[in-house]
Amino acid sequence: MIRTFAAAAIDGLTVVHDPVVGTNHLSPTTLPAGRIHLDQAHVAAWPEAQPGQLNPQAPLSMCYSLIVRCNLACPQCLDDKTVRESTAEERQTMAGHIAASGVLGVDLSGGEPLLLRDLPDVAKAIRAGGRTVVSCTTNGWHLARRAAELAPVLDGLRVSLDGATEATHDRWRGDGSYSRAIGGTRAAIDEGLPVQFQMVLMRDNHREAQQLLDRAAQLGVGGVTFLQMLPIGDGRNIAEQQMLTDDEATATIDALTVPEGLRLRLRTRAKADGFTVLRADSNAWRNTGGATSITIRATVTSPQDLHLPVPGSAA
């Protein structure tokens, strides 16, 4: 399958960002810089960029949490709900800064980004710079009705699920959440959007990991990323009861049988350490302390404010 990636030359290496999976890869050959169409199977086979290999001017990828509001109330949510909401004008300004910063990939998140009418405009403004690929993470509740307008402006979509079954997912997110997410996923795939599932690994859901892989393959979803739970935001309140150790998470993933053609990824807390989040208040934050906390690094008033010092782990 041919889809859109972002490429850049950094320290003599060609780095390619995958907007669907969220990974960074080293190309064996020199590629044109900017948004580029590549075979996803080829990119997946290339080695991932490892911590300490690169010294990019800006983070390779980041999250823009452009809305605080959400129609759901997930107990493991990472977002800071005390942050003020952004205005449409501020979102356009931030989109311009991201587009000009040199960031290869940005994931539009929240809160729930599909609550914003101007979400397509923000995605367009970021992509207009010609260098950045744009994905969006959603709970899927409003996805079915918005898939058609989002498909032309997004390079990837990540649908969050808290379980492979309706009973498990809705226990965390509320009645009807699972059916809305699955219906939205079908609509997005029908519109040609590359979709992947994301699930935060917790004690209450990790035994459904295999079922989620099988469900993804059945629906035509391209991959599944399992995220080690972070004790940040509301997640701090349930971390002691729900957080898996690294060994437990790795054992869960190692035991899975991956359906043909499906991409599987485990994002450990180590890989999340140092990741950049631009929140609705226009402050750039970074995961710190092994991704067990998050701290402000800069107020973003220009593209250069996103040229943050690269931490010891990959951006």
Rank of each mutant, 00 (worst) to 15 (best):
I2H: 10
I2D: 11
I2S: 10
T4I: 05
A6T: 02
D11S: 13
D11H: 07
G12V: 07
V15N: 04
V15I: 08
V16H: 02
D18N: 12
V21I: 13
N24L: 07
N24F: 07
H25N: 04
S27Q: 14
P28R: 05
P28Q: 07
T29R: 12
L31I: 14
P32H: 10
G34Q: 03
R35K: 05
R35P: 01
R35V: 01
I36H: 04
H37T: 13
L38G: 07
Q40H: 10
H42A: 13
H42P: 05
V43F: 10
W46G: 03
W46R: 06
W46K: 05
P47S: 07
Q50Y: 10
Q50A: 15
G52L: 12
Q53V: 00
Q53P: 03
L54D: 01
L54G: 00
L54F: 06
N55C: 13
P56A: 03
P56V: 06
Q57W: 10
A58H: 06
L60H: 04
S61K: 02
M62K: 13
C63G: 09
Y64W: 04
S65R: 11
L66A: 05
I67D: 07
N71W: 08
L72N: 00
P75D: 14
P75V: 15
Q76R: 01
L78Q: 06
D79Q: 14
D80S: 11
K81Q: 12
K81S: 08
K81C: 03
V83T: 13
R84V: 10
S86M: 06
T87E: 11
R91L: 00
T93M: 15
T93S: 14
I98K: 10
I98D: 07
A100N: 09
A100W: 05
G102N: 05
G102P: 05
V103L: 03
L104H: 11
G105T: 04
G105F: 06
D107R: 15
